[in-house]
Simulated scan of single mutants.
Amino acid sequence: MVCIDHVPDTRSIVFFPRAARKARRRGTALGVLAWLVGIAFCLPAMWMLLTSLHSEPDAATNPPSLTAPLTLDSYRKFFGAAGGASPWPSLINSTSASLVSTLLVLVLALPAAYALSVRPVRKWTDVMFFFLSTKMLPVVAGLLPVYLFAKNAGMLDNIWLLIILYTSMNLPIAVWMMQSFLADVPVSIIEAAQVDGARLPTILARIVAPVAGPGIAATALICFIFSWNEMLFARVLTSVTAQTAPVFLTGFVTSQGLFLAQLCAASVVVSLPVLAAGFAAQDKLVQGLSLGAVK
């Protein structure tokens, strides 16, 4: 006599493999779509790299030739091997302005974000809105007052003027980002350090900064990219001494025409520091941008 109570449910045997196959196909389709989107985003950079390896006549053909011979003449001309202007002063100026301004932003934004998150001040939401409202003014609207101030102060074509401007421009973004990162720092750790007699600088340097390290790294990278890519103020307020890399790129557009291959080679070189910084900090960047996403 067979007991029907122990007969297995064959519906589960059929259903779960079918659901697994459907989920696998869905995951494969999403993966292929992600690859296609990623390739679409990388195509302009790949095309710029390929154009930089062509000669000027081959780069100017329409439609462009993919089978044209490759050469490094554009890079030799960019670095001054063929009698052109040296890009090193501009690259050094961009590096100095970006690194110093990013460091100043982090030093100023960390205590401000601490006061707005871990130890919130009164009406801290109004303070956050004020920081955000400073980015609502178009940059070009403040160009003339800044130019007149720099002229009267004798700071035109001065790298320190750009450092001050980049610091003030990136500080609201840094405070806004780091406030959300520092909000995830456990208050109990800070209170334990205070019981042990730790002062505020020690708490910020040895407790808050390591815990919120990924968020601080993400903020630093974004501020560095914004400073490195800024061209409007650098174009108006500098000429030769404090000229930055984006301003140097505009020199390839002359009355004689557009030197496309040289411009692409210069763009590749100028993009390398940002790409290197992003690649070096990619782990902390992903962690930092995902902080607070899952509660």
Rank of each mutant, 00 (worst) to 15 (best):
V2P: 15
H6G: 13
P8G: 06
D9S: 14
T10G: 10
R11D: 14
S12H: 10
V14H: 09
F16E: 14
A19W: 12
A20M: 12
R25M: 13
T28H: 10
G31Y: 00
V32G: 01
G38Y: 09
G38M: 12
A40C: 12
L50H: 14
T51L: 04
D58I: 08
A60L: 15
T61A: 14
P63G: 00
T67N: 03
A68Q: 07
P69A: 13
L70Q: 10
L72R: 05
L72E: 02
R76M: 13
F79C: 04
A81H: 03
A85Q: 04
A85I: 11
P87Q: 11
S94I: 14
A97C: 08
S98V: 15
L99T: 15
S101H: 14
L103G: 15
L108R: 07
A112R: 06
Y114A: 01
S117Y: 01
P120D: 10
V121W: 09
V121C: 06
R122H: 10
F129G: 04
F131I: 09
F131V: 07
S133G: 08
T134R: 05
P138F: 11
P138A: 02
P138K: 06
P138D: 04
A141R: 02
L143M: 09
L148S: 07
A150M: 02
K151Y: 09
N152P: 06
G154L: 02
M155C: 10
M155I: 07
L156G: 08
L156N: 01
L156I: 12
N158Q: 08
N158P: 06
L162H: 08
I164F: 05
L165W: 10
M169N: 09
L171S: 11
I173T: 15
A174I: 14
V175I: 03
W176M: 09
M177C: 04
M178P: 05
S180L: 01
F181H: 13
L182H: 02
S188Y: 00
E191M: 02
E191K: 01
A192C: 02
Q194R: 12
Q194M: 12
V195F: 03
V195Y: 00
D196F: 09
R199D: 11
R199Y: 00
L200D: 12
P201F: 11
I203V: 09
L204H: 01
L204S: 05
V208S: 08
A209S: 15
P214T: 08
P214Y: 08
P214H: 05
A218V: 10
T219Q: 03
L221G: 03
I222P: 01
F224W: 13
S227I: 11
W228D: 03
N229F: 00
E230P: 02
V236D: 02
V236T: 09
L237F: 05
L237D: 04
T241Y: 11
T241I: 10
A242R: 06
T244Y: 03
T244K: 07
P246T: 05
F248G: 12
F248A: 14
L249G: 03
F252N: 00
T254C: 07
S255Y: 10
F259Y: 12
A261F: 01
A265Y: 04
S271Q: 07
L275C: 14
G278Y: 09
F279T: 15
A281W: 11
A281G: 00
V286M: 08
G288D: 05
L291M: 15
A293Y: 06
V294N: 10
K295R: 15
